[in-house]
Design a protein around this nucleic acid. Structure first.
Length: 847
RNA sequence: GCCCGCGUGGUGGAAUGGUAGACACAGGGGACUUAAAAUCCCUCGGCCGCAGGGCCUUGCCGGUUCAAAUCCGGCCGCGGGCACCA
């Protein structure tokens, strides 16, 4: 062969790796293990550049760890349940199952040419009955342990499609598909008791040192701990059975600023009134009409209705406050009831203004007096304020001090107790959808809700379903739902809801450790491989997927499916940036935008010469057509070029812009490396004086590339490899030294460009395959230069430099520096006030 | 509104207190070639100067330090997350 030809060499080496079984993960008690995992893909049918970047990062880590002596687990699978498969069936006919498995086959076919060091023997899809059957087993164990339960919940209900919609699927109060006005409906749904772990999930974030600070903060905010006081008002004029009203507040120090109490429309008291009072009923109905989406809540005006009921202030039984039903009170936070303090809460202020309620201030800014208020005064809790209606502690103190004092005072006086609350709510997992994991329970008229027996798992999805009508096909299946009650044997009905697809992805990492086990996990395998040492994926999963997985690790531990050490699923997390591309736009005759694929645009023009508008880089998306198909890059340049490009230039946590010129340049560089190896393999000649310098460059490269990979700075590893190849190219070293350097290059570039590395290694007579070779160690003796160049600053400005032996004593350096002719010229006889010598670094002369 | 991050040449970025701009893309010049491609060499932050060289420069203003892109304070701009959470 006379030139770099990845189309030939890449398939060759992939076959060689397969044949050698190089990537098959094996439990090896003699070696440390390393489990590296990239977030598994949804099988859309096509891989995109984001996949290439994500899996290449994981592959770099996996290959480097394998070369460094670790027993590596690097698996791949498919997050295969979900709505796109059903939507495809609805829109184009066919079956979700066929659509999904065909997509998996297509994507696997596109991923294999990337040459990833994946153990494909562990591959599974979450829609495999072998997988979701084990998930059902987990569900039953969690049910038995009280980690799953049923309750009524308010959801977005699409009356046309007859399904629950996620908040994201409600647009302007209408279903995204049907366009029907979405209703708030109360349904009985299954929930995971994730809130039982609120405190622990929050506290344990501190231990996740190798997670991005940003993700930990987002999770902490999401869990949302607050400390406050819960106490009961005595009710007056309330219906029979309602004599006390529990409320929760984080600002008990503002109790003397109370001007009303308010309850949620879903509060038991409101529901009671709703049944007996038509006015209340119509008001509550009005509140319900507004959706639960964030957008709907944001735009909804504050509404309230005086119930006529009164509460007595806990510190003054003669002080009565009106009780309102208010639309902005959430039933599932705190107690679903509050006391309103309009002076120090903006919502309460707006409410009080609207309904002409008093606004008594509790504190004022330190050093100022009471005055008329145009908005609520809400200072930072760390800011000292002067209390004019305080009841515990000093007159001037911070909000935080006042809250603590108020809780202590209230507890001592029998008014409630301190309580810690969390924003995190239980995870509703029921979906009225076909293409998901069936919830393995049966509804019996006599026995109620009965768990399916373990021996009847998996509860398989039926294949004979139709999608010609809206709603869940499982509901209208003629036979699937009819089963005997697992408890009494009488005819009963299967649960037809399926699980949220987030359940599938909450434990797949554990299943990879023993993908064929007849229980959810295998104790020995899980014990050896867990936890995932390095997890890599998009930051868009910072909260839901990563929090659910952390919950599942705990739930699986509690139910005996994970060993003790695996309380956290992912020891280290890396969130990678996107691959972006410019957008090319023209406008049609009607003024509508028309987008063009990058391959149709050359130097800013279409084929017919039309100039396109170039919009700066954005995430690759089909609708903007700014996509580059990895398969076309592999066809044109090979997988190594695609891998090299996505590792280059941008730090991995940031976005990287794909450019045609960059891809071409990557290919040119790899070709140059190939040529250097080709020439070196045939060169003859004696050793040369430059051999030692090249050996030093090799040591430098090993150090820098290793540091880049281990520090997740692949762009710096790539830069070090560029510098190394420049050094080899420019070197006047002899052929043996060049071959040695190039073999080291093959070893340290192998994680990024494994096929080319094998090729170079083979050309230069390397032993075996470079993918099986040990990671090279830099010779420490070569790293230290004999002489160092020290810049000399005068008053902080660089004016000269001297070259001195590395270990020259400080005082001699000082003498040399002051004797330097440039220094003498700049000093012009001025006396030196101070002389700073930082060994090996710099000299600064202060005058 | 609350929380967080970022700001360095034409571009992506490097340097986390010690020579700012490594490495690369784009640009400019040259060699080879009948020509092109490929390849190789030089140049490439701004201003002044024939040159040796000098001055300026990390969003803006100030501070700490012998020394600041880096640490501290304030401002401006961009991006992300959460959001009726009592």
């Amino acid at each position: 062969m006379s030139q770099y030809d990845p189309a030939v060499t890449e398939p060759y080496w992939q076959a060689a790796w397969d044949e050698a079984g190089l990537f098959t993960a094996r439990r090896d008690p003699a070696r440390p293990k390393y489990y590296v995992l990239e977030m598994f893909p949804y099988p859309s049918g096509r891989i995109h550049m984001g996949h290439v970047r994500n899996y290449t990062m994981g592959d770099v880590v996996a290959r480097h760890k394998a070369a460094s002596g670790y027993s590596v687990l690097h698996p791949m699978g498919w997050d295969a349940f979900g709505m796109p498969a059903e939507n495809a069936a609805i829109e184009r006919g066919g079956h979700p199952k066929d659509w999904t498995y065909q997509n998996i086959a297509d994507m696997r076919g596109q991923m294999k040419p990337l040459g990833l060091s994946i153990d494909w023997s562990r591959e599974f899809a979450t829609c495999d009955p072998e997988y979701y059957g084990q998930q059902q087993a987990l569900f039953l164990d969690m049910l038995a342990d009280g980690l799953v339960y049923r309750k009524n919940a308010v959801v977005n209900w699409d009356p046309v499609d007859m399904t629950v919609l996620a908040n994201e699927q409600v647009i302007d109060g209408k279903g995204w598909r049907s366009g029907a006005a979405v209703e708030r409906r109360e349904l009985t749904q299954w929930f995971f008791r994730i809130s039982a772990y609120s405190g622990e999930l929050l506290d344990a974030l501190d231990g996740l040192k190798d997670w991005p600070e940003k993700v930990r903060l987002m999770q902490a905010n999401w869990i949302g701990r607050s400390r406050g006081l819960q106490f009961a008002f005595t009710l007056s004029g309330a219906p029979e059975g309602f004599d006390r009203l529990e409320v929760y507040t984080t600002r008990p120090d503002t109790l003397m600023g109370a001007s009303f109490a308010a309850i949620s429309p879903d509060h038991p008291l409101a529901k009671h009134l709703e049944r007996h009072d038509p006015a209340v009923a119509s008001f509550v109905a009005e509140c319900r009409r507004v959706g639960t989406s964030a957008e709907a809540l944001e735009t909804a005006p504050k509404m309230g209705m005086d119930t006529g009921i009164r509460v007595l202030h806990p510190f003054d039984n003669g002080w009565e406050l009106p009780v309102y039903i208010a639309n902005f009170i959430l039933m599932d936070y705190g107690t679903g009831a509050i006391f309103g303090c309009p002076a120090h809460d903006q919502r309460d202020f707006e409410f009080a203004t609207k309904y002409s309620l008093p606004i008594p201030p509790v504190f004022v800014a330190a050093g100022s007096d009471e005055g008329p208020m145009t908005e609520a005064f809400v200072p930072m809790k760390s800011e000292p304020v002067r209390y004019v209606r305080g009841f515990a502690g000093a007159e001037v103190q911070t909000g935080a001090e006042a809250v603590d004092a108020a809780i202590t005072f209230c507890e001592a006086n029998g008014v409630g107790h301190g309580v810690t609350n969390y924003r995190l709510r239980d995870w509703g997992l029921s979906r009225q959808r076909y293409w998901g994991c069936p919830i393995p329970v049966v509804h019996c008229d006599d026995c109620g809700v009965v768990p399916e027996r373990h021996e009847n798992l998996p509860v398989r999805l039926p294949d004979d379903v139709t999608f010609d009508k809206p709603g869940n096909p499982l509901d209208r299946h003629s036979t699937w739902g009819r089963v005997p009650c697992p408890a009494c044997g009488k005819p009963a009905r299967r649960e037809t809801d399926t699980m949220d697809t987030f359940v599938d992805s909450s434990w797949y990492f554990a299943r990879f450790t023993a993908p064929h086990a007849v229980t959810p996990t295998d104790a020995a395998d899980a014990d050896y491989w867990m936890n995932v040492d390095q997890y890599i994926g998009g930051v868009e999963h910072a909260i839901l997927h990563l929090l659910y997985s952390r919950f599942f690790a705990r739930a699986m531990h509690k139910t005996g499916h994970l060993p003790g050490k695996a309380i956290e699923p992912f020891n280290a997390l890396f969130t990678q940036g996107m691959v972006t591309h410019e957008i090319y736009k023209t406008t049609d005759a009607n003024g509508r935008p028309v987008y063009h694929l990058p391959e149709d645009v050359t130097e800013g023009r279409l084929q017919d010469g039309t100039v396109v508008e170039v919009i700066p880089s954005a995430k690759m998306s089909k609708s903007k057509k700014n996509v580059v198909d990895p398969m076309s890059i592999i066809a044109a340049f090979g997988a190594d070029t695609a891998r090299w490009f996505v590792m280059s230039d941008s730090p991995p946590e940031r976005d990287v812009e794909w450019t045609a010129s960059g891809a071409e340049a990557a290919f040119k560089h790899l070709s140059r490396v190939w040529r250097m190896a080709d020439e070196a393999s045939r060169a003859e000649g004696p050793a040369m004086p430059d051999d030692a310098a090249l050996a030093r460059a090799s040591a430098r490269a090993i150090t820098d590339v290793t540091a880049g990979i281990e520090g997740f700075a692949f762009n710096k590893a790539v830069a070090a490899l560029y510098a190394f190849s420049n050094a080899i190219q420019k070197s006047d070293a002899g052929p043996d030294a060049r071959r040695d350097a190039l073999k080291i290059m093959a070893q340290i570039m192998a994680p990024m460009v494994p096929h080319l590395a094998e090729e170079v290694w083979a050309m230069l007579g390397g032993q075996g395959m470079v993918s099986a070779a040990r990671w090279p160690v830099a010779d420490a003796g070569l790293l230290v230069e004999g002489d160092v160049t020290l810049p000399i600053q005068i008053n902080g400005k660089r004016r000269a430099e001297i070259s001195v032996p590395k270990d020259m004593p400080k005082d001699e350096i000082e003498k040399l520096a002051l004797a330097n002719e440039d220094v003498v010229r700049f000093l012009a006889g001025q006396p030196v006030k101070k002389l700073i010598v930082v060994p090996g670094r710099i000299i600064n002369v202060v005058v």
